[in-house]
Structure formats: C-alpha cells, structure tokens
Amino acid sequence: MLRVTIDNITIEVEEGTTILNAARKIGGKIVPPAMCYYSKLKGSGGKCRTCLVKVATTSELDPRPLPKLVPSCSTLVQNGMHVQNITSEQVLQERKAIVEFLLINHPLDCPVCDQAGECDLQNLSYEHGLEETRYEEERREFAPVNFGEKIKLHMNRCILCYRCVYAAEQITNERVHGVLYRGDVAEISTFVENFIDNDFSGNIIDVCPVGALTDRTFRFKNRVWFTKAMDAHRDCEKCSGKVVLWMFGDEIYRITGRKDEYGEVEEFICNDCRFENKNVSDWIIEGLRKIKRSSVISQNHYEKLTKQSIIKPIEGKMEQQE
C-alpha cells in the first residue's frame, strides 16, 4: 500500500492507483474534475487538462516537487506523495484558464442544448469559469450532423475528449468514427456516410461529457430536470439490462446507462435497451435513482415523487428549431 496526501488528507491506496482515483477514494471537494478520463475506457485521459494538480512532494525517497502541474488522471501515486488540488492557488488559476480554453470555441448554446443540466462542461464553468468571456474572435462552426436515426453530433460543442472514440473501439469493436484532421479544426466524423449503427453504438452518447453527442429520440422532448430518473432493469441477451429511465409522468422519455457521481456509467447498455423499449411495461422499475443533490437534475423531484410538473413539453415548437 502507498500513502498519499491530497489537500492535507492522507489515505492509503494500492500500487498503480492514479492521483485522481486516490482523490475519488477520499471523495468530496478535493476530487479534481475530469472531462476526458473515463475509468472504463482504456487509454482515456490526459487530454483535457482540467484535472491538473500540483505535486509538492514526489515521494518519500524523492521529496522534490514536480516542476509542472501533472494530470491527476494519469499520474501514478508514489509512496509519501503530497498533492495539492484545491489548496493550490496555482492549480485553481490554471484550471480557470483551461476552462476558458475549453469555452472559447464553444457555442454557449446551453438554452437549446439537450445536455444542459447534466453537462460536465456546464458544471465545470459554474465552478471554475470566468464571469464573462475574454474571447472576441471568430468561433469555429460546424453544422449539426445525424449519425443515423438515433445519434446526433453537434461538433461545435465537442471538447475532443476522445471518449466516444475509445468507447466505439473498445465496446463495439466496429468503430466507424474517429477524430479527423488536427488542431482546433479536428472533428469527430465518419468521413463517409455519417452512419454509426451497431448494438452498442448508443454508449457514445453516455460517455460524451458535453452535448456533442445526444440521443435523437429524446431531442428537445424535455429538460432533464423536469424528468424523474428511475433505476430499472429487464432481461437482456446483449447487456446487463440495468438502466435509468428518464420519465415524465408515466412516459419514458429517454433511457441511459446508470451513471455514478463522476458521470461514468456503471455498465454499458445495448441499443435495444436504450432505444427500443420505451414502454413502462418493458421494465421492472426498482425505484428512484439517487442523484447528487447539487445537480440541477435533482430539482423538482425528490420530495414528492408523484407530483407532476405543470409544465408540459411543447414538442412541436421545439422540433422546429432542429
């Protein structure tokens, strides 16, 4: 076991643990935000730089600090390591800058984005963003694209975390999309055809930390904070069948995997479960999904589950914007 101290809290972790996972073991405010790392996707992490932390003491044997901030998601703990996250002014300053970088080419279209309310970038900017942008130049712009019937890509919102690429590669093994071109004009694309379809393709929606990849079947139907999230399962040949139903009244609006407090699904689900079983009778409902109270999704329900919101989705009007 290795001893590591993060923001003055000491914990023992197994060898091979990253700083981020050690911090997640501690939990709470000292956990660095992570936009590209995804524990279930091999090779993910290191790219977004939002989880940068300061290593004040490298290890017991080498008490020197590391010269640069390091990505906590991909830096391994060493015995006797001292890490500063929210206790380092430098880390907070740089994180603010990273958030600003992530936002300069972002359209800031939260009011019309289906991810709003469950968006890691939105949360990150609330916590670390500047109040107003210093960016006055042109933003890159892409037209929205449909990857088949079920998945929509808004490249404008993408932060190039590569999670969907790893997911397609590792879960589906039938990857037809990737990151094409390079630099700030790099884009998620299939290059030909614009069609992603296989049994597990819907998971690229779940792993997307922003509103770049969204569920077309849920598009503009409702706001996540108006829906209630119910854990449910069914017998499924292809996956565990354990899902979250996003319901409004007795209707299922959307089905996703079950996400933990860091936004990662517990188990990947198949497209049959996600897209093809939208009747309540298809599911065995376990009960209300526990959602962090800080999340906007937890608004409107939790107290009285049966009470429905008086606001009804105005579907026709919303569709027109598409």
Binding site: G46, K47, C48, R49, T50, A97, I98, F101, L102, I104, N105, Y135, E137, E138, I159, L160, Y162, V179, Y181, R182, G183, D184, V185, A186
Partner: peptide
C-alpha cells in the same frame, strides 16, 4: 504552431488559435 498543433490537449489546441487570431487583428 496553430497549424501544427495536434489538437489533443485543450490549452494548445485552443490557445494556439487564439494567439494567431489576436495577432492577426
């Protein structure tokens, strides 16, 4: 450097373009 950035990590991908656009102005 904007042209040559691989685009993998955010400070370089976004920052190099910002530098160029500001300098162009």
């Amino acid at each position: 450097y904007h042209h040559e950035s691989c685009g993998q990590c955010s400070p370089c991908r976004e920052g190099t373009g910002w530098q160029e656009r500001l300098l162009t102005r």
